[in-house]
Amino acid sequence: MAVHEIVIAGFGGQGVLFLGEVLAQAALSEGREVTWLPAYGPEQRGGTAYCTVVISSEPIGSPVVSDPTVVIAMNRPSLDRFEHAVRPGGLIVCDSTLTGRAPERTDVQAVAVPATAIAAELGAVRSANVVLLGAALAAHPILAAESVRAALDGMVADPQVVARNAAAFERGAREGSRP
């Protein structure tokens, strides 16, 4: 089975580490091996934040990745920084509301979703990260959507937030499966 090396990047406070943890919990529930590594420098709300998630059926060597298979870029600096790192044939998903541009690479699958605008429209402005997650999974079957949804529900206590996340995930999945 393929090894997925995923970088999720954005501003601190956008739910970058949370999104990675959702993927890690979902991978665990599917019985996979997984590593979740945050960038743990002097990060702060509004500063840059990113994490690396590696998912494999085999024991994982390096948790550090230089050429990810998937990049989820939640702002412009993240797209600028990680677009060129993605492995040819890989996937870039970006929040086009905040990146202000689509990915330029032609040798990767690029999905530009106005996630922040969609989240605002759904009344779930803090769930823009989940819109991107739905889009990424629809575009590239990293893990089963059901296990990711279950992991997402399991990590949030507030039922209203669970409902908002579910709506954001479904909408993202529709965006990500557009040809």
């Binding site: 943890e21 890690a24 665990l28 091996e33 997984v34 590593t35 979740w36 590594l37 945050p38 743990y40 994982i60 948790p63 550090v64």
Partner: peptide
């Protein structure tokens, strides 16, 4: 090291 401390694994 810092990675082993900060990383999550099963």
């Amino acid at each position: 090291d810092g990675i082993l401390g900060q990383m999550m694994e099963p």
